[in-house]
Design a protein around this nucleic acid. Sequence first.
DNA 1: TCAATACGCGTGTAATTACACGTATATAAT
DNA 2: ATTATATACGTGTAATTACACGCGTATTGA
Lengths: 147, 147
Amino acid sequence: MSVNPGSLECTCYKLRQVTRLVSRAYDAFLVPCGISIGQFGMLETLKRMEGESISRVAHVLQMDRTTLTRNLTPLKKMGFVVMQTGSDKRERALSLTTAGKRALAAAEPKWRDAQTSLEQQLGKRTLKSLNDAMDATLGHLGGDPCQ
Amino acid sequence: MSVNPGSLECTCYKLRQVTRLVSRAYDAFLVPCGISIGQFGMLETLKRMEGESISRVAHVLQMDRTTLTRNLTPLKKMGFVVMQTGSDKRERALSLTTAGKRALAAAEPKWRDAQTSLEQQLGKRTLKSLNDAMDATLGHLGGDPCQ
DNA sequence: TCAATACGCGTGTAATTACACGTATATAAT
DNA sequence: ATTATATACGTGTAATTACACGCGTATTGA
């Protein structure tokens, strides 16, 4: 007997359930830092993609281009991110400010606490299978999401 | 060498990436139905929880109570869901209308196409490990999310 | 060179998500 | 019975998500 009798066993439904649950947990740890786990991930990605354009960063995040544009607004307002126009005037070169790097570094211990808490609740084995399932899915569907 | 060099290997980051990616794919299949995969999942849950309150349905969806309240607005506007007050006047008894049941039934083939497409892209084995990882995570963290 | 096409981006609109706060109802304590 | 507490919910605010549409810039074709 399934724990979810009568349900359609929708993979997307499960993903959304789990993502809400896990995101709330991470957010709770990050409250003292003043940023969300989504913002933490964006800062982290921007750090690794210094000077890249909105579209390329959005692709790595598997995020719609316009979504990233919107999500950058609070990060710019907080003074963590700047946009500059380069040789190709259509593109916006994104980069972290010093304050942005500082905020990211300050949030990292709290992020680690959240990650460790998840590991303790799930167990190493289940956490690994979760991470592996995500990586495999990105590998199959993501085109070329990472790097 | 990881595909994500320098990254922090954040489980929540991966979950959010994958959920965005997969949700967009399901949404594409559901376009002709006029509802999103999130709405499909809510209708599906409401069908299985006829007459239940906002808080209880939100708990099953692993959704904040106020989020469900907001998400019900378009479903009520489309005439798919109604709210009634029962014996306990604090509670709202949720239920699908006939139109809601019809819309859900009409969307099911498209949902199945999306689910099948995901299975074909990931392969049966990877899809199963993805589903299992979600179930295990919900089992460990969700308290009592399903049923 | 100049038109046609492709590319990168912003904005309008609307749904999704959740916290903080307040209100109304029910239950418990005295 | 009355007060205190707990429960269920709505709203303000703000971030997250993405599609449709339009504008400016670059590249390509003739």
